[in-house]
Amino acid sequence: MPRLTVEDLKRIKEQHKAAFTVREGGARVKITVHMGTCGIAAGARRVMETLLSEINRQGLTDVIVTTSGCAGLCSKEPMATVEVSKEAPVKYVQLDEEKIKRILLEHINQGKVVEEFALVTGNETAI
């Protein structure tokens, strides 16, 4: 291991930012994937995996991903709720790998809700 300089201290801190966003809170975006039995059957796990690997690949440090149980709309699974801080949550339905990638690109990175996959835009909060 090399001897550190002050710049190295900053670099190490930066590298671990993502982990501490998860632990300390204060993320800009929270994505909740609904993982009830119905959701898992419909492919929620694949959606989750795609989401995580994309977040990793793009090095996003201010996005956290959590899970919740069945959202009560089994026919529309897999579902995910996207909450950008200070904005109303958006529920996306009947997701697959390609759709979640587009949501990540357009909604999370560019700030535009992907209306065609969205269920409702309301002030309900995912638990």
Partner: peptide, 10 residues
């Protein structure tokens, strides 16, 4: 550094 969605602190 891999990003985990969840950290279990034991």
């Amino acid at each position: 550094m891999d990003k985990y969605r969840c950290n279990v602190m034991l």
